[in-house]
């Protein structure tokens, strides 16, 4: 039932928007977050409600049989139930989360963000059975005991620079009756670079100036079906007249070869830009691997030639933001 599903999703989205406004006021993003009372929420789990039903049933049973021992059992379970709120809170409070490094990765692939966990409490079982995941991502199995760093996956298909979404940290310890959780906003970004396009790889692997490269260059341009955003100047009008349904453009591969250690992104938009960026990304990776000096020329930005991991990162970030 897709209609229902979408309704549910829409409702959830609306709910999350409302919650976000509240959370942003309550806990604005910061580089280091310590879980304190104002950040921890606690509510019964589904099993907790069942347990409460058990307590009510025992109260009825004890009252109807006028049996003090059943009532004693009922109150014992009730006190355990209430104590669990405190234990659940203690299990979360005092935990400090931070994310020291901005993670980077390629769009379309899951990237792993390393979250540092530390605690005031030095004992080994101070924080157990924590499950962490970013809001909107698939939940992960709980961590049995506290470890100093945990890698959490985020997958996103769009390149760019993103702010980390809120991190949901929750725990049902010790009896699974209450769920304590917190939505933590960490002031950190992550980078998604355009995913490197494998198709162009072979062309670029051949070093500049070889015969085949020349052949391609002389032969002219590769033809490709028109995609949204391609420049109208590259359209092959003759073919369009013959077959108006399938417009064809001339792919410009000549630009990179003109300046072999410059990655050039032509001014384009839409899918064409994306394609150029993917190819540019692949070029950058290959250039870095080959140890040459290289730079990036974007329509509005030029990064001077250099090499090394920092240069690569600078260039890739420029591509991601293009």
């Amino acid at each position: 039932m897709p209609a229902l599903a979408t309704l549910k999703q829409r409702l959830h989205q609306r709910y999350w928007q409302l919650i976000s406004v509240y959370l942003d006021k309550r806990q604005p993003a910061s580089s280091k977050v310590k879980l304190v009372q104002r950040l921890i929420f606690i509510l019964p789990t589904r099993y907790g409600w069942w347990f409460l039903l058990l307590i009510v049933l025992l109260y009825l049973l004890g009252t109807n049989y006028q049996n003090n021992l059943i009532l004693l059992t009922c109150y014992l379970l009730l006190s355990v139930f209430l104590l669990c709120i405190v234990l659940c809170y203690q299990n979360l409070s005092g935990l400090t989360l931070h994310c020291p490094v901005a993670a980077e990765g390629f769009a379309g692939q899951p990237i792993y963000i390393s979250i540092g966990l530390s605690s005031d409490n030095s004992s080994a079982d101070a924080h157990v059975m924590l499950s962490l995941h970013f809001v909107g991502q698939a939940p992960q199995p709980p961590l049995a005991t506290l470890c100093s760093t945990v890698n959490l996956a985020i997958s996103n298909t769009q390149r760019g620079k993103y702010r980390l979404p809120r991190l949901k940290i929750s725990s049902q310890y010790p009896f699974g009756l209450w769920r304590g959780w917190s939505y933590v906003a960490l002031a950190q970004d992550y980078w998604l670079y355009p995913s490197p396009d494998g198709q162009v790889k072979r062309d670029l692997n051949a070093s500049a100036g070889t015969k085949e490269q020349h052949a391609v260059q002389q032969h002219g341009d590769i033809l490709a079906p028109y995609r949204h955003g391609d420049s109208v100047r590259h359209l092959i009008w003759k073919r369009l007249a013959r077959d108006p349904a399938n417009p064809v453009v001339r792919e410009q591969l000549s630009a990179p070869e003109a300046e072999p250690s410059w990655v050039i992104i032509p001014p384009a938009s839409g899918e064409a830009l994306e394609r150029a960026l993917r190819q540019g990304c692949r070029q950058l990776l290959d250039l870095e691997q080959s140890g040459q000096q290289y730079g990036v020329k974007l329509p509005h930005l030029t990064i001077a030639q250099s090499s090394g991991p920092q240069q690569l990162q600078r260039c890739l970030q420029a591509l991601a933001l293009c």
């Binding site: 058990l54 049973l61 049989y65 059943i70 059992t73």
Partner: peptide
């Protein structure tokens, strides 16, 4: 089990 154990008190 909880329920049955409490019922033992009957």
């Amino acid at each position: 089990h909880y329920f049955l154990l409490a019922s033992c008190f009957i």
